[in-house]
Design a protein around this nucleic acid. Sequence first.
DNA 1: TATTTTATGTTATAATATTAACAGGGGAGG
DNA 2: CCTCCCCTGTTAATATTATAACATAAAATA
Lengths: 222, 222
Amino acid sequence: MENQTQKKKVPHMTITRLAQYLNCLSLLPREHYKEISSKELAEKIGLKPTVIRQDFHHFGGFGQAGYRYKVTNLIEGLERILGLDQKQNLIIIGVGHLGQALANYRNFDKLGLRLVGLFDVNPRLIGITIRDVRVRDIDEVPTVVERENVHIGIITTPADSAQSTANLLIESGVKGIWNFSPMNVTGPSGIIIQNEHLSIGMMTLSYQLKQMLPPLSASSEY
Amino acid sequence: MENQTQKKKVPHMTITRLAQYLNCLSLLPREHYKEISSKELAEKIGLKPTVIRQDFHHFGGFGQAGYRYKVTNLIEGLERILGLDQKQNLIIIGVGHLGQALANYRNFDKLGLRLVGLFDVNPRLIGITIRDVRVRDIDEVPTVVERENVHIGIITTPADSAQSTANLLIESGVKGIWNFSPMNVTGPSGIIIQNEHLSIGMMTLSYQLKQMLPPLSASSEY
DNA sequence: TATTTTATGTTATAATATTAACAGGGGAGG
DNA sequence: CCTCCCCTGTTAATATTATAACATAAAATA
């Protein structure tokens, strides 16, 4: 569209699905899939074709009537929309099990993200190296954020230090926070904060299981 | 697709939020919060009070008009709705970094979940012990699922073996799958499958950042 | 070349979710 | 006891999202 600041609001679910499309497209073998139809893509993800076409329509569409979508064209467009064409530097605070798992996450490269810092308060962790990145003391966060022009910070600390960590990140100049601690963190408007609670996924799974499985005993009370 | 155990269908977003409420409530100090109002809880999560009351209304409400909600009552009710009151056994397949991180996830206990098995194909991992659970060969999955009455399986394998792993789990008798591999997995109806793609959270964050940050160059073309 | 098929972009309709408005219940304070 | 205020449960209205329907364009086929 005409305006990059985006006049009409794109539904949040659409953005989530665009990410799904991109993820799916980047995984399928390129030689067999030079082109793909909305029907094919929808089948792979478990949606209806109209959803995909409607999502694309928010951005003017990616093909032309009659043709199928060109996969490379699609991927490039999605990456541009999602902002993945501009490389970003990020840091991780909290080098516990989850922090280490994320530090080893290969897909960061594909997303245009570069891990430039790992931080913790635990002296036993400070100094070790994970994928060529050395773990530093948390006091060094402001320095690294400024020097490396870091825009994104990932929080994998325990719950009770999540908010203080977020504050530190924000003061240091980080613009987006991806929080994996169980506690919600908040910040001033202008800072993008994504709280990613793993337990919520588990709970919704549990709920659906309960609906599906026969109740063990026809309990009298609610 | 209608569910006979459920008269009126509860919106999916409501279930997600119920999980958020429970997570938030379980984290706040019990002595200071014996009771809580919809307004207070909404503030903590960043919602409006009416959302919470509407969500609760799908289940008949948790308090009575005039009173505030009793926290213990609320927690018990949410746990019952989400099916967390019934203990479940689960296994993890794929003991890479993410699998190990999940194996060490303390919150499983709070969710009524018990890790009873770890599996991998890598001989170098088979035999090691994480939190008193020994890593077994993937061939032993059917045996353990049956013996331990496992209902939930977590997939943390690479993308190319995700679907085959899901098939194995389903054939073994698992009823719910929590898939962390980047590739969507599918199964027959009756099996609950939750695909949890971490990269999607990162991409939506990237998108929002792009909307917020000033465009580096006023590029002519979209 | 005419026609059928398949595909996308667009518009219109149906379904769903959010938000607001309202109706009572209980406690505090005069 | 009465009034005021705050609270929840419920219903109604609004806004948003998903689905279906349609118009059009290209390729394939006869």
